[in-house]
Design a protein around this nucleic acid. Structure first.
Lengths: 217, 217, 217, 217
DNA sequence: AATGAATGAGTATTCATTCAT
DNA sequence: AATGAATGAATACTCATTCAT
């Protein structure tokens, strides 16, 4: 087998097992047994177990970059709402398509240890930067309130996506419960739109003061 | 030292070290060294390392139950918005007050292993059930749209809270960046209110373009 | 067993096995099997195998310091020759008494690896410094030529002692050949005395030039 | 590259690396990396790593046989002293010229393991036999005392040469200290001459005090 | 002759846990 | 209750060696 193929084979197997059992509860021997290769083989391609995990993170990142949402799920991005819809779709459909990657990015990666975490954070950072860029663009075309807190918003978006994916795609799927992805995306999008897309979300702050005024009566 | 005190002392120390280094990277010997007790001592109180972690989760839960937000941060819960504000406040102020617990619940607990995860999930479940109960009550008093998806909403709320806490209280704090908690709570609350409190409810998909048209008038 | 006793027991066993089979061909498991202790036991007392070797070197050094030559072998140090005799006796009798230490200092230690060698060299250095001190004292009382090269002499002495000990005490003993230690010491001493003790060694340098003059004829 | 050249290239590289890092700390991969050849290549020429070392010893022996001291350092061997001088010169100049061989013969070879040691000892043995032959010849021409202990003398000579070479050529060179080889040879020769060349022969033990008394007259 | 992917026996080391004191 | 010496299962990792190409 060619080195690149073997390497990818090991990474794929590691993804599956890390996702299933976590980093510390997955032994190198589990991987080599599953692949029917020798104990020393992975060490031809990875310096150690941590390096394997880090290269796995990188692999997932590239899988994500190259991932294409099914054509019929893509909307023409002629409104900010549809643009948002496409973005959320890509994430949810990717996680749905590659549940192990979702598991690793959301559940396994954070909290492993101090050597690995920076690399997981770095990957999250690229997600966040992407979101922020979109939000800034949204401000420029006046789709988002001028005084919106871009940083906070980006973490809110990330939080919603990851937690909802975790529950619907990982936990419920594990219990064999079916999930209607299309509907799920719709609901997430409309919720997020309510927060920050102009016209879809009323100026929350002003309403607050109104109510408070009422209360004071 | 009385048994109960010693036990609590061990749990507190474990909380600190698990939070800092994770479950697998924290050794029993680290705990006993820090406390200047003997290697065998924790085994008087905990069956094993996992049991220590599980009792820690339980301990955190009770800490959380008993936690009181500073009086001046509490609003009179006479509106759904203020009710929500109080709920969010309790979580954010608790996490701010006990950053190690936040770390363990958000980052360390999920993804440890298959023995421990159910217990972490159980704790999350009580959070979720709490949120759902509130949301159902909100529906009854007509503060929330009748057709809102309670389950999804609860996970959205949990996702926003945990991810935002993680970033602002854990990651930014680790870099010594200061955080204005009061403002943070305000922004989270208004964002969440925008999603599901009536009057701030998001438009259905079709409505989007309509409203935008309207707005352009 | 008390920690100090156990530690010494392990060091003694390591001395025996390192001496017999060398550093790399001695496994920790050989040591624990011989002592009928658990595999992890030595790691209570030594950071790792190298640390065990280094502490062994230190142990040998202290054994050497405390070693006493049998009373009847000691001469009254009333002449430089007898002083030298006593010094050589101590080394040869120590090596004879503790053949494993001799083996480790002479054969095993040098050439192990770059981490360990400095420590072996450090020990040799203290030997050399001792010899040099004596040589300088010898110069002061005019027992040694004023222009003798102290440094070179000290290495000559060390070379003679270690190589002769190696052959007679280690190699010949291994072949069950008997060795008359007393005679051996006498011969070594008279050889060394010939080199540098005044009156016992003719001024070699002058003779050289004489001969060279002859050659030029 | 012709097989013989490749084989020699591997031996030369092995010499360099074994000398630098020792037998156990030198990996086959270090050698093949340095030579930019494949991992399996050395196994065309050597049965295994030990065989490579043994053939290296043999190689060094032949290098030594063929080694020629610079003409201007050679003396006409018309006196025992000069004969000795030439012998010592050859060794010291060889070690100076090929420091890695010196390192391997003196420091690395002894103490490696029980398979290799006999071969190193065999090489030493040929040195010793050479020395002994000379000493016996010296006795015949009456240049050496009839009752001199040839065996002991030969080990003394070997000890002096190897220890002094080790210090001056290996240790001091490693610290970039300069060494005057010519002077060094002179001093070694005159020291050894003092021990066993007639007229420089050491006194018997009893004679010491006598002579000293005489000297004091 | 040369390559380099693959092998797997071998080893040091870790660390939760036990238990006699 | 507390101690800490001892245990040994568990595991990552190494590296000489092989062999199909």
């Amino acid at each position: 087998m060619k080195p690149q193929e073997r390497k990818q084979q090991i990474i794929e197997c590691a993804k599956k097992l890390f996702s299933k059992n976590g980093f510390y509860e997955t032994q190198i021997i589990d991987i080599v047994n599953e692949l029917r290769i020798s104990k020393g083989n992975p060490y031809q391609y990875f310096k150690n177990k941590e390096d394997l995990f880090l290269q796995l993170i990188d692999y997932i990142y590239h899988q994500w970059i190259e991932f294409k949402v099914p054509d019929d799920k893509i909307r023409s991005p002629n409104t900010p709402y549809n643009y948002l819809h496409n973005k959320i779709s890509k994430i949810i459909y990717f996680f749905d398509y590659d549940i192990d990657s979702a598991n690793i990015l959301i559940r396994i990666g954070p909290g492993i240890n101090r050597t690995i975490e920076p690399f997981v954070e770095k990957m999250e950072h690229t997600f966040i930067e992407n979101i922020k860029r979109d939000l800034r663009a949204g401000k420029r075309i006046n789709a988002i309130e001028k005084d919106a807190d871009i940083e906070l918003l980006s973490y809110i978006i990330l939080g919603v996506i990851s937690r909802v994916s975790y529950y619907y795609l990982i936990q419920r799927r594990a219990k064999k419960a079916s999930v209607d992805i299309e509907k799920l995306v719709d609901k997430i999008v409309s919720s997020l739109a309510a927060i920050y897309l102009k016209g879809s979300a009323p100026p929350a702050v002003k309403q607050v003061s109104k109510r408070r005024t009422i209360n004071k009566k």
